[in-house]
């Protein structure tokens, strides 16, 4: 067998594993770990273009998709990723009412654990749910979105998409517009982009700013023109109808007028700007249809890249035995 013989520094992998058992958030990752995921995702992406879109890397491993919140997009993406790696997948969609009636998250997890899944992909409406699971379970836990806290694989696929188009992350001006307070996608993206050296601007109504937003290392403004001026990347976040009822802003029409991404606003950005949205989109609220379907949009690329990035994460966390957990 030919083992890779290392005689040059360039041949030495900077890091070839994540220094942790679980992926709970971008906040815990170091920049070299993020790079590792993105580089591995590149290799994974190629598998999707083969006639047989499958490799045996996770053969015999059981991955449970435990979704307490409904989700088609993310769950399907994970499922495809798992199957492409030849893992056995199990989808559990729990209607929230059954949790209210009976079993606690901890008990659900312990019962699952008894069947020895190798990995659990968890989406839950409470921030920190994945941390609870990671403390209880020996399986590797992947956070597919916990409450308002983080959605790390979304940020990773966003970064992958940006790098694909722009060949880098450092130094780019990235404007993120939307419901910043409630968005886990925002938090994960802020962590990742600032760690990788991007210049991040967040924009929305002040009612939707998390406290002390600038402590996250970003510029904050309520003026969308300021945020998108000369931007390399514009990321739109979903506005939920319920927020209107919580008196965060008066109406969706007003939101669109003040913050919606229109072609006119787009022209303030760089000529090769890319438009991103984690989905699902509210056309006519945070983004105009023409922009969503226009030439600058990479929204569908994001979806495609989601599978490759999730394959990379599954692969990197799946390694046979105990990984050292981060201190």
């Amino acid at each position: 067998m030919s083992a890779p013989v290392i005689t040059r520094v360039e041949d030495m992998p900077a890091v070839t594993s994540l220094r942790r058992k679980d992926l709970l958030g971008i906040a815990d990752l170091a920049p070299d770990e993020i790079s590792l995921v993105l580089e591995t995702a590149e290799a994974m992406k190629e598998i999707g273009s083969r006639p047989i879109k499958k490799v045996p890397a996770l053969r015999g491993k059981t991955v449970v998709n435990l979704f307490f919140e409904p989700s088609t997009r993310t769950r399907t993406s994970f499922e495809i990723a798992e199957k492409r790696l030849s893992a056995d997948t199990l989808n559990i969609a729990i209607a929230s009412s059954s949790v209210v009636k009976g079993e606690t998250l901890a008990d659900t997890a312990l019962n699952l654990e008894a069947m020895q899944p190798d990995m659990i992909v968890l989406r839950h409406s409470s921030s920190g749910a994945c941390h609870l699971l990671a403390r209880i379970c020996r399986s590797a836990i992947i956070n597919a979105g916990d409450g308002m806290h983080e959605h790390p694989t979304q940020a990773l696929l966003d970064a992958f998409t940006i790098r694909e188009r722009k060949q880098r992350l450092a130094g780019l001006k990235v404007a993120i517009v939307g419901d910043l307070l409630h968005s886990r996608v925002l938090r994960s993206n802020i962590h990742l982009l600032t760690k990788m050296g991007a210049d991040v601007w967040v924009c929305g109504p002040p009612t939707l700013f998390p406290t002390d937003i600038t402590r996250f290392g970003v510029r904050a403004t309520s003026r969308v023109d300021e945020a998108v001026a000369d931007a390399d990347v514009i990321m739109l976040l979903r506005i939920q109808l319920e927020r209107m009822e919580g008196a965060f802003f008066p109406s969706l029409r007003e939101y669109f007028n003040v913050f919606g991404m229109t072609e006119a606003r787009l022209r303030l950005a760089k000529p090769d700007v890319i438009i991103m949205h984690p989905g699902p989109m509210n056309r006519g609220v945070e983004i105009a249809s023409e922009v969503a379907d226009g030439p600058f949009s990479v929204i569908l690329d994001q979806v495609a890249n989601g599978v490759a990035v999730r394959m990379a994460v599954l692969y990197l966390l799946a390694g046979g035995a105990e990984h050292e957990t981060a201190a």
Binding site: S127, D146, M148, H149, E150, P210, T211, R215, F216
Partner: peptide
């Protein structure tokens, strides 16, 4: 408590 820590952890403050 509504503050930076709650914002980081995604908890209502």
């Amino acid at each position: 408590h509504e503050g930076y820590v709650a914002a980081t952890l995604g908890l209502r403050g």
